[in-house]
Write a protein that binds this DNA or RNA. Structure first.
Lengths: 176, 176
DNA sequence: CCATATATGTCAGCCTTATTGACATATCTC
DNA sequence: GAGATATGTCAATAAGGCTGACATATATGG
């Protein structure tokens, strides 16, 4: 998974001259660590995806469909925050290669419910496995007592307005 | 800052059927938290950059030039891991808008040493300030005793072969 | 039953940021 | 002077976003 362009809401408004801020020195180390950590975090899936001629966009779609079986197009657009035109291109490819299956809604026949196929599930799990392995290894370099703090920190990095929604989607129990 | 595509080296090689792994459940929560955290982390600069008709590529270049005054083209390419053609496009724009200044090397006149101008420094600081504010706020939601663990965790997420180099570049002392 | 709203699909064109390959120029080093 | 090195540039291509416009199927409310 890699972050798409997102137009969220302005949060911390800081005076135009940041040098004159009250807070003092900027946390350059953490800014750069986060940048490099994320860069390498997505590099593992990238290599697997390249074998299949897929990109990060495919990964994101497959990941969330696998994690949320029966997801509709509208829900997926809301998670990914991209346009339906952009989604459609990669979704078509994932359906065409039988990693994702589309089912017409029962209650509302306008809706399309997305499901990972067996091979889609396997690929999603393989991609999550390499990322999970990096996370697991990184956690080991830190006392276990600090693990909850890491989760709390990452959660607090998310826009406050989105936090609740994100957390509710995340805590679904293992689908992998 | 946002991560460019990177072709690192394969690290954790996991059996093709991740379901059969020894480790057990995959850390889906941390995978998704990292994704959403990074997405929002880059959204703040994105809004400022949009005002100036700049993109993330400009941010990355300006950031590292500001942090490493006198950086050469080759060194910058090594940090960003993009091609010189890609770099040149955004660099030209940053030089054209006088956010970055190019100086011919003294010892080696083939080299170009890059420096942020006063306005480049101000913009870089402004961008770092919004990201720093998000980080500062996130750190507050965690006991201060866990702060070193967060730094250690992010460091451990970086490819081991790159870690030393990254850390040595990061620990430069405040240039902002 | 009809009008309108909703969920999705699709066409066409554009932008940014990356890529590869080829080649040019200036300068340094042996 | 020959060759290596640092940088610049031209051209073509690709991925993955975007906007705008429009089509279709289905639901829903009056």
């Amino acid at each position: 998974m890699e972050a798409p362009v997102v137009r969220g809401k302005v949060e911390a408004q800081i005076a135009n001259d940041p040098e004159a801020r009250a807070g003092g020195a900027l946390p350059y180390e953490l800014i750069e660590l986060f940048f490099f950590a994320y860069r390498d975090f997505v590099s593992d899936p990238d290599r697997i995806l390249a074998e299949l001629e897929f990109g990060r966009a495919h990964h994101r779609v497959l990941h969330f469909v696998n994690r949320n079986p029966g997801l509709t197009i509208a829900e997926l657009l809301d998670i990914l925050k991209i346009t339906k035109q952009s989604l459609n291109r990669v979704l078509k490819e994932l359906v065409g290669t039988a990693f994702i299956e589309v089912r017409t809604g029962q209650a509302d026949r306008r809706q399309r419910h997305l499901h990972a196929t067996a091979s889609g599930h396997a690929l999603a799990a393989r991609l999550a496995a390499v990322q999970g392995e990096r996370i697991r290894q990184a956690l080991q370099s830190v006392p276990a007592s600090a693990h909850p703090a890491i989760e709390a920190y990452l959660t607090a990095m998310i826009d406050p307005e989105e936090r609740k929604q994100v957390l509710s989607r995340i805590r679904k129990g293992p689908v992998g």
